[in-house]
Design a protein around this nucleic acid. Structure first.
Length: 477
RNA sequence: GCCUCCUUAGCUCAGUCGGUUAGAGCGACGGACUGUUAAUCCGCAGGUCCCAGGUUCAAGUCCUGGAGGGGGCGCCA
């Protein structure tokens, strides 16, 4: 292959020289204008064909979806849509594309349809924009933590611990499911399994991150996470990516500061580096909003929404304060909530979270100090003995984007909480060891990566921000 | 897991009270045009009305079951 110039670079190059580009045809207009895209940016390169100088049988093969190599001279464009264009001197068909059977047409497609052809949807404007932004966010996460001296920890994906309590787990085994080795009592003998014990896919890297934090001080994980929950929503996946920072010597306030700084940094990064893709998605969203009834339309455009998040501090309040607001809220008094707020202690439903974020405060909200009964065993017990130092960061349209806490660092209190919640302490001795040997206050949280991508791109279904979504009943591709 | 809606041409959808030969836009194809921006204009083809039963003189339309998909709720990130 001769030297290739990326379309992203070519569009910023002064005209005059010859270049070779390779990419896929979006449209071929007027037997003259090829809109070529190579994914390096949203914009297409316009290649101009003098059709009298090319074999008609070659021109017939320039169809939507075909892969081309075009060599030509970069010239100022006579048309209005672009400043430069490539005057084609040579065209080579790298791969034909039979439009009779190629599912992508030069027209608008529904997200539902594209989801069924996820192997081809990268070739659309919307999905190429989403996945470029997804990449930018991934890179920015590493940059944010690296710049602050955090150490990236690769926590295990196969775990022997089944006591994390973060959700249903997928089993990992090499045993013959049709004829597994049995113990005398008829149960399966996992000693004969690959790892010599029952193993699962991880539901969280947090416990391992805590071990590292209690030596390296500032760490984070960024890896795949698996939950075998039968969740059927636009916000849940069975396989998703999670970022879990864990910081020694941090309390809950430090933890909230870190979460807010991080989210603002990431949003700012995308606004600074993904202007073209963001503008496209903003326009796409605006067109989608037009289809909705006036009442349901959002007041802000995508970029306004992102800027708004940057400009205002997140609202921080305790669970108890939130209950008071909800109890006295108009929808609660008028019986509009499906689950009315009656007494302190109840878990908040998503309708309540949405009211706080979207109606009452109209900005991101951090809820803290939840009743201990509705939170995990490892969260630090408050002095009153009834609440724990938990924090949930709630975003408009997404709900919970971050869940975290200051961790219980006191050995006796942690052990007591584990017993209360029926966590088998014997199997968790390695975790308890950290509280036995030089324990310190520490805190951390989990950020759902796809939920962040959802928010930043303005997409509405989490299955559209991961290349090949896994959810109940579906593991295609 | 629960609730709800949908499934008609390649895609998006219309199809009245159950009644003749099931329609439109876009896309594809053929032609015209040749500085176009999802080009335009003219023409043409394209249907297992999701599947299996049932009711009826007659079912895309009604009923039962199944499959696939969307949305909401719960679980949570």
């Amino acid at each position: 292959m001769s030297k290739r110039t990326k379309i992203l670079d070519l569009l910023q190059t002064a005209p005059g020289s010859d270049y070779t580009v390779m990419g896929w045809v979006r449209t071929f207009r007027n037997n003259q204008f090829i809109a070529l895209n190579d994914g390096s940016c949203l914009a297409n390169l316009q290649a101009v064909v003098d059709f009298e100088n090319f074999d008609p049988s070659l021109l017939k093969r320039i169809t939507t979806g075909a892969a081309l190599k075009i060599t030509g001279t970069l010239i100022p464009s006579q048309g209005k849509g672009q400043s430069v264009e490539l005057k084609a001197n040579a065209i080579e068909i790298l791969g034909d594309c039979d439009v009779e059977v190629y599912p992508l047409q030069p027209k608008r497609h529904s997200l539902e349809f594209l989801r069924e052809i996820a192997h081809l949807r990268f070739r659309t404007n919307t999905f190429s924009a989403v996945f470029r932004i997804r990449h930018a966010l991934s890179y920015a996460i590493h940059k944010f933590f690296n710049d602050r001296g955090f150490v990236n920890i690769h926590s295990p994906i196969v775990t022997g611990s089944d006591a994390e309590g973060a959700g249903e787990m997928f089993q990992v085994t090499t045993l013959d499911l049709n004829n597994p080795p049995k113990n005398e009592d008829g149960s399966i003998n996992f000693k004969k399994d690959f790892f010599g014990k029952a193993t699962n896919l991880t539901v969280s890297g947090q416990l391992e991150a805590e071990l590292a934090a209690l030596a390296l001080s500032e760490v984070y994980t960024f890896g795949p996470t698996f939950r075998a929950e039968n969740s059927n929503t636009t916000r849940h996946l069975a396989e998703f990516w999670m970022i879990e920072p864990e910081v020694a010597f941090n309390d809950l306030d430090d933890n909230m500061d870190l979460a807010e700084d991080m989210l603002k940094y990431l949003i700012q990064y995308v606004m600074d580096h993904c202007e073209e893709d963001l503008s496209f998605l903003e326009q796409r969203l605006a067109e989608e909003e037009k289809q909705k009834p006036q009442q349901e339309r959002s007041e802000m455009s995508l970029k306004e929404k992102l800027a708004f998040c940057l400009e205002h501090p997140f609202e921080r309040l305790t669970y108890t304060e939130a209950i008071d607001i909800l109890k006295n809220s108009t929808p609660n008094k008028k019986g509009k909530f499906q689950y009315p707020i009656e007494k302190w202690g109840a878990d908040l439903q998503s309708e309540h979270e949405r009211y706080l974020v979207e109606k009452h405060f109209k900005k991101p909200v951090i809820l803290t100090n939840y009743p201990k009964e509705i939170k995990a065993f490892y969260m630090r017990l408050d002095d009153d003995g009834t609440t724990v130092r938990a924090m949930d960061v709630l975003f408009p349209g997404i709900g919970e984007i971050i869940g975290g806490s200051q961790r219980e660092e006191r050995y006796d209190v942690l052990l007591g909480r584990m017993k209360e919640m029926h966590i088998p302490a014997e199997e968790m001795s390695w975790f308890l060891d950290t509280r036995k040997f030089g324990t310190v206050p520490h805190a951390g949280f989990g950020l759902g990566f796809e939920r962040l991508v959802l928010f930043v791109t303005g997409m509405t279904n989490i299955r559209d921000v991961i290349p090949f979504p896994r959810f109940p009943g579906n593991a295609e591709f």
